[in-house]
């Protein structure tokens, strides 16, 4: 620490190169039955920069969900290092809880608590952080507006459609202003039209919140539309196949999906994925 303070240039340099998320030599094994194990992920080494939107894309069984759960600290990897903002996520067998505070997770299903109103669901993380009632209500209202479900604060989750519930789940993950938002196929359960709409919304929310996002999907379109960078995974065992920069300008609209450049990228990714199957 002292060294950095004495050399401001070095400090600036080191800040620039410290990635928001870094996985090094991460490997994940699952034991199946007696003495046997399946290698789910091997030799994963990725960096995700601050405010970057990274999409993990791959066929089913490539371990992309496992990888996200490892970043989220829900799984401790069999070996390898997970670092968030330069600090290791695991210290021995213990999760560093201060780091977990900076992560927001959105799952495949909304997993809203059915016994809480939409507002209370969204503000639940704040409640657990000891925020007062007024603050929680204010933040929930603000977030409902941000994710486009304003006016539904007092409803039960079951009174909302699947798309609206998933929006609420995103709002819940954003409630405590995490630096990193981790999303595991958040729109997989939605119909195609709602999904397109959610992708546009997601981009808007991301630009507004200034968070780093890692999103898992098996939809090539979704990946190319949303990502700054696509990390393509191949299966059995899950590993990084290619990393693709997506250069399209922001904000992107749904019509740009018809552009030749977009189509070309989708086609080449599909070709690459087909070779894996």
């Amino acid at each position: 620490m002292k060294l950095i303070a004495e050399h401001p240039e070095a400090a600036a340099e080191s800040v620039k190169i410290v990635p928001e998320i870094r996985l090094s030599a991460v490997e994940q094994r699952y034991s199946v039955g007696n003495d046997e194990s399946v290698l789910a992920l091997t030799n994963i080494a990725i960096d995700v920069g601050k405010r970057e939107f990274v999409v993990l894309l791959g066929p089913s069984g490539c371990g992309k969900t496992t990888m996200l759960r490892i970043i989220a600290g829900l799984i401790k990897p069999s070996s390898g290092l997970v670092e968030i903002d330069g600090r290791p996520l695991w210290i021995g067998d213990r999760r560093d809880n201060r780091i977990v505070q900076e992560l927001g997770v959105v799952f495949q299903e909304d997993h809203l608590f059915p016994w809480l109103s939409i507002e209370d669901n969204i503000a639940l993380p704040l409640k657990m952080r000891g925020a007062g009632k007024a603050e929680r209500r204010g933040r929930a209202q603000e977030l409902c507006k941000l994710v486009g479900i304003g006016g539904f604060e007092k409803r039960w989750p079951r009174e909302l459609s699947g798309g609206m519930r998933q929006r609420a789940a995103i709002a819940r993950a954003l409630s405590y202003r995490p630096n990193i938002l981790l999303m595991d196929e958040p729109f997989g359960a939605l119909d195609a039209m709602t999904r397109d709409q959610m992708n546009v919304e997601m981009q808007r929310i991301w630009l507004a919140s200034g968070a780093t996002i890692v999103l898992v999907t098996h939809s090539i379109n979704e990946a190319v539309f949303l990502a700054d960078r696509i990390i393509l995974l191949s299966p059995r065992p899950g590993r990084v196949d290619t990393i693709i920069d997506v250069p399209f300008a922001r904000p992107r609209d749904l019509y740009m999906q018809n552009s030749p450049a977009f189509q070309e990228m989708v086609a080449s990714l599909r070709k690459r994925l087909d070779t894996m199957a």
């Binding site: 829900l74 505070q101 799952f107």
Partner: peptide
């Protein structure tokens, strides 16, 4: 899934039980 949510929110055992 609800358990995952509580884990990802860093909830204590007591909070997990109550909430």
């Amino acid at each position: 899934g609800h358990k995952d949510v509580m884990t990802s929110l860093n909830a204590s055992r007591f909070a997990t039980f109550c909430e």
